[in-house]
Structures are given as C-alpha cells and as structure tokens.
Nucleic acid binder design. Structure first.
Lengths: 258, 258
DNA sequence: TCCTTAATGGTCATTTTGACTATAAAGCGA
DNA sequence: TCGCTTTATAGTCAAAATGACCATTAAGGA
C-alpha cells in the first residue's frame, strides 16, 4: 500500500512497538473535579505524577487492560470496577513520547462516583486524587492546591484532552450520572455539570430540562433524603435507561466558541 | 501498578506488538456516501476488500502514517493531501483481529471532496470507491450495488464506527464543508447532510440555520453558479472560520434514539 | 422563633424549530 | 416561444425549548 510495502514485500516484517494503556480517572468531590494520579517510583520522570496505566498483557485487548488497571488503581475488585464507566479517549503515538523506547499508548477515560482514597495493592500506594484547577467562571476555590501542570510523559496533554471530552459528552449524553452514586439528588447531578464545565447553572431550569428528558433519571419510589444537608430534603433519583440526551443540554459558553 | 508488574519488575520487558493505521476515507458522490476500499492481494483475506492502511514506520506517529497512506491511496501528492480532513477514530486491539499476529490498529477517518478514481502508485491499483448502503429513510437507490458487508479483518466494525462518528460530528461541527469543493452551493452542503444521515431536510430551514450560524459559510464575492443545473442558479459559498456549530444542527431522528 | 439554605413549582418573554406557502430564475420539450 | 419542471430564496406562523426570574416549602442553626 506504499513505497515501503511494494508487491512482494514481506508484510510480516514490521517494527515492534510497546503498547500501553493510560487512564484518566475522574471523580467529583467537594465541588471539584479530581483525577487519579500515581507518583512514579522510577526513571524516567521519577518522583513526578503520572496517569495510572501499564503495558498490555500478551492476549489482552486495550479495553481489558484498561479495566484491569482501573480496578487495581482504585482498589476496587474487578467485579465492582466492571460497572464503572470506561471509554476510549484516543491513542498517542508520537515517536519520542517515552524517552526509553517507542511506546504507543491507548488512553481511556473513566468516570467514577466519589470513592474512598485509593488503597490499591501493589504500587498503587502512591496513588492519589488530585483536584484540577477550577475553571475561570467558577468562584475561586482553594488556590493553594498542588499545581497540576507538569505530569510525566505527555500526560498533561492526555489529561486536557480527557477533560475536554467529558465536558463535551455531558452535553449530549447521560454520562453525568456516572459520577453519581446509585441514588442521587438533582442537586448532586447539577453539581456534576457545574464542576466539569466550571459554570453555574440555574437550578429550576436545570431541573426542568432533566425531568423533561425521558430516560435521563427516574424517581426512586418513596422518600426524599434528609441527610445533614441544610435545606429542604431533596427527592432521590436513579440513572434512567437512556444514553443520549435529545435535545442536548448545552453549556452556556458554547456561544463564545469559534 | 499491578500483579503483573510488582516492585522491582523490569518495565522494559514488554510484549512487542505490530502497530498499523487503517483509514476510512469517505466522499459524497451522486448522493451516495462512498468509502475507499482496496482489494487484498495476499492472505489472509486474499481477494477480500479492506480499508486502506499499513504499518507505522519506525519513527512515524500514527497521524503521520495515516496522512502518508491517505496521500498514497487517493493518488494525491502529500502536499495536497495535507489539506484533507483527517481525524483519529479509535484504536482496535482485540488479540485475534489479525490471524497472523498481534496487531494493534489506530483507525482514522478522512473526509474528501469528490475525487477522481484512485490512481495511486504501488498497489493502490486495486483501490476503489464503494458506495455504502443507503440508509432506510432515503428513497432506495441502486439496489444492485456491491454488497458491502464483509470486509477483511474487523473492518466492517471500523467502517460502521466511522460512519456513525461522522454522522454525529455533522451535528455540532462545521465538518460537512470538508466534503465539498472549495466553493459550493447550499444545496450541495445540504446534500452532504442528507447523504450521511440518510434523511431529507427542509431546504428553507436548512438554509436559514446555516446562514444564521456565524462562521459556518461565507459568501463568495460576485455571482452564483449557473452550471448545467436545471433550476435557478445558486449562490456560492466557502467554508467559514468556525469549527463548531452553536447551537448544533440536530438530525431529525435524534428523538427516536434511546 | 427568626434566618439561612436548598428544593420545588411556576410565569413570561425570547429563541429556535418545524411545517409550509409564495416567488424567482433557469433549462427543457413541444 | 410557451408552458412545465426544477432548484433557489424569501417569508409566515405556531410549537418547542431556553433563559431569567419570583414564590413557596421544609429543613437546620443561631
């Protein structure tokens, strides 16, 4: 198919690459978007933070490898991790992205509800939830947080791509519920949107939109939650059967984009 | 990071994979969506049709390899091909997707205006534009077309994913202009939407929407085209500077999705 | 008990759609 | 040359969806 593979050329003569998966695992915690990072124990980038990930096993698909890593890094059993939302982001293959050798990495994005601190076995001991810088439009939260800006390899780029992708997918899918526990209030769901997008939304309008979208959420039988929360107890909902939002729930700043 | 990589494990000991790119190159021709296919000259799947593609060169990124293949298969110079729309679709890595060996393939989607028949050098001699089955909602066109339904490897799946992706992207990006020549009429642009989506759109409404979206298209200075076309000559437009559509141009069937 | 904080229930004006009608400007066949 | 057909364009009108607000309800806390 190319000058590099003329007729008669041996198609078995290929350049070998190492293939890995990298995970951008997000959660919403205390109105901040957090990503799961691990501290590197060896060169290159020893001591730097990086996205969790690892090599594919010989007969594993990237998806399988990603779910395995997800379970390990979050400290959940694979069985529990099987329910988490995981989707392929894109593949990074720049020749020099890893100084050691040629590594092609398939990146995945995972959305999880607020989990306990990562207590995985193995070297996940160095894993930690790191808050992402709050987007401009929101009131400035803790400005003293760890400066998340120079991860190992090209992981800054992967993280940025992942953040952008989930922001976009919240618009036209029911993905936001993946950040919530099994039962949640509309206020919590709205928090997800506000946190990921970095904007504030009008509560009544958000509620109207969500409830008007068939299959987005479904009410839990009886009672609202009372919790220690200050205001009026909110009704509880579960994720519905729909996967797409129609019409979409567009972020307000969309107008300003080019 | 895992039981397979305990502390002290040599991270350099990785399983080698072959890495390829596969291309789903689309064009709109005579109100049908066409994809570029090549006939395989050797086993496996000898004689079957497949998406064009090939191995990454030692120091090439997947993107570079994809653009190189695109130029070769379409018979365009790399310089010309550099202007074509090319974007990464996703990566396919099932262990047995290639019977010969472990191959991880990064798939790309390309959109091109109606080009002459592929006359590439090398083995692109077996390349051909193949019409895709017309989606249900449209009037049944030539039902006697080649049954595009069992491509080599997992290329059916890749093709289906690519088709779905471009359909979705037409909704919220200005991508449709990538199918058109440099100057085009609104009727031609509408054709793109109708062809990819397999629906009919209301002409005045389509026109209103496109012209109301700043940066989608811009009018060409003077005159409309007259061409042999039957009706009133249409005004000519060029692609504008915008890349996103806000609000999006939603396909009508959206409602029926889950 | 009064105040503050959220959740909910509504209203109203604007925007955006979707469905259509009407007019203009070619090409064609008789 | 005269209709007829075809495609482009200009509008109209009502329904649907959004954005901006106001009001009420039901806790928890000082």
């Amino acid at each position: 198919m190319s000058a590099t593979r003329p007729e008669g050329y041996d198609p078995y003569a290929f350049e070998p690459f190492a293939v890995t998966v990298d995970l951008a695992v997000f959660t919403v915690r205390e109105s901040r978007l957090h990503v799961l990072l691990v501290e590197r124990g060896q060169e290159p980038y020893r001591g730097a933070w990086a996205l969790p990930g690892g090599f594919l096993l010989p007969r594993e698909s990237a998806e399988t490898a990603a779910r395995r890593e997800l379970a390990e890094e979050t400290g959940l059993t694979e069985r529990t991790a099987a329910d988490l939302h995981l989707e392929q982001l894109r593949t990074y293959s720049e020749p020099d992205r890893d100084p050691r050798m040629r590594v092609v990495s398939v990146a995945y994005t995972a959305l999880v509800p607020d989990l306990p601190e990562p207590r995985g076995g193995g070297d996940a001991a160095h894993a930690r939830w790191m808050p992402l810088p709050t987007a401009a439009p929101l009131p400035a939260f803790g400005r003293g947080d760890p400066p998340l800006a120079s991860l190992a390899f090209d992981h800054d780029r992967i993280l940025a791509d992942a953040h952008e992708r989930i922001g976009a997918k919240l618009e036209y899918t029911c993905l936001a519920t993946a950040f919530c526990p099994r039962e949640f209030t509309l206020g919590e769901l709205q928090q997800v949107y506000e946190t990921v997008w970095g904007v504030e939304l009008d509560r009544p309008n958000f509620r109207r939109k969500v409830l008007a979208t068939p299959g987005f959420v479904e009410a839990v039988e009886g009672e609202p939650r009372r919790t220690g929360g200050r205001g009026k107890p909110a009704a509880l909902y579960r994720a519905g059967a729909a996967s797409a939002l129609y019409p979409p729930l567009l972020r307000p700043e969309g107008r300003q984009q080019t």
